[in-house]
Nucleic acid binder design. Structure first.
Ligand SMILES: [Mn+2]
Ligand SMILES: [Mn+2]
Ligand SMILES: [Mn+2]
Ligand SMILES: [Mn+2]
Lengths: 225, 225
DNA sequence: CGTAAAATTTAGTTATTCCTAAATTTTTGT
DNA sequence: ACAAAAATTTAGGAATAACTAAATTTTACG
């Protein structure tokens, strides 16, 4: 019943999962951009995924795709691999959080379920990866997460950084220097409605961040102070 | 200059290396058998490897193949990955020596040079994998090895097991039970010229082994007692 | 509403890497 | 030496996954 999926297929499913987490369907173009593959190629692959048996995606022309139960399962499997691997690389091989993504991107497709279980056990079954993203459980449920983008906060609000949704080395290094890492406590000091800049206090430092950054940092809101 | 090789290509080169270690060229059929690919497919791939630039193999019809300097380099790279990974899986994740091969077989193609260096450093730059096979050095030289197959020894001869050349789970488990693992000291008690069986003493145990086993166990001969 | 722009799909190719069946070459055994 | 067997290559083809160019559909907006 469970067929071996190709690396390519796994990458599509993972990306569709990420693009549909907000409840919307994933568009051909969005997939093409994320996967760095041409739009016609994406259309072709989507058709194959939709007519696989069991179908991995639900697809109607011009309407984008969503994952079927099977597709979601496969996506969560890959995401679990990816995030466990990132945690493992950081904890046991001294990688920094800005170096792990590419390595995990390739390893995620080739490790066995045995390997997965061993690294999970060795780390004490972690629930978040080094960027703070939740790791799907062994039975492939994505843990609930109530955090919101920093960009949604306003002056006086604050909380704890749960997660930084980025794999850009430069940005991650920059944020680390600012102390904007998971578990950091932050407070919004000011909001500029014109450019959506936020002035943030992290520890004793104060920084101004643009929307392209604040939309990638997620906060568990703590109080309206 | 250095192009990325495909997984398939890497597996061919690795296998050609192994088949040509004895100085002979690797035949199409031998490759087909080892790689579990049909002979015509092997012929096709060999032609491509031979006409790549730079060429990875030397090939003349019906004469088998050998590696060029470039091909050998690439093969040693993969072999180093494989053996380091096996050692690492055993040392850090508690795999046993009969479980590591398949996992390493897939991982060897996707780890970065950075990953390679990190695990090598973490283990203190080991020189042998869990089966005792020598690990090519960082500058891709295969360490010299003067050990000989156990099958070449006769009554009274003995030495230290350096290496077991097998990836068969069952055989490896069996040998482990007998204590026939790297660094074990053994002595040949008897030789039967008809079936080539050897009677071996390992510690206080005595065992009779057939040629299909003794040809896979390598010994650093210690004395003619 | 109706058209221009944007998004998506269709059509036609290409590159890899594998396959089976058949032909050819080499090796082997008497 | 020579026929049978074994090894190898040739021929033809399939599956996967990518591409560009062109056609079509949807959307956006004046
Ligand atoms: Mn990937
Ligand atoms: Mn898994
Ligand atoms: Mn391999
Ligand atoms: Mn390497």
């Amino acid at each position: 019943m469970k067929k071996k999926l190709t690396i390519s297929t796994e990458d599509y499913l993972k990306t569709i999962y990420e693009l549909t987490e907000n409840g919307e369907s994933a568009s051909t173009n969005a997939l093409a951009q994320r996967l760095k593959i041409s739009a016609p190629s994406v259309t072709g692959m989507i058709k194959k995924l939709a007519s696989a048996k069991p179908a991995l995606v639900e697809y109607q022309k011009h309407q984008g795709v969503t994952l079927t139960r099977e597709g979601k399962r496969a996506a969560l499997e890959v995401i679990r691999h990816h995030r466990l691997l990132e945690a493992w690389l950081v904890q046991t091989l001294g990688y920094s959080w800005d170096e792990v993504h590419e390595e995990a991107e390739r390893l995620e497709h080739v490790i066995s379920e045995d390997f997965e279980q061993r690294i999970a056990a060795a780390m004490g079954h972690p629930t978040r990866d080094p960027h703070g993203e939740p790791i799907p459980t062994e039975d492939l449920k994505m843990p609930a997460d109530t955090s919101v983008p920093l960009s949604a906060l306003r002056s006086g609000q604050g909380g704890i950084v749960t997660c930084v949704k980025s794999s850009e080395t430069d940005l991650l290094r920059h944020l680390e220097e600012l102390g904007l890492v998971p578990d950091a406590e932050i407070t919004v000091m000011d909001y500029s409605p014109f450019d959506h800049n936020l002035t943030i206090k992290v520890g004793r430092k104060t920084t101004v961040l643009g929307l392209s950054i604040t939309s990638k940092i997620f906060i568990e809101v703590e109080s309206g102070a």
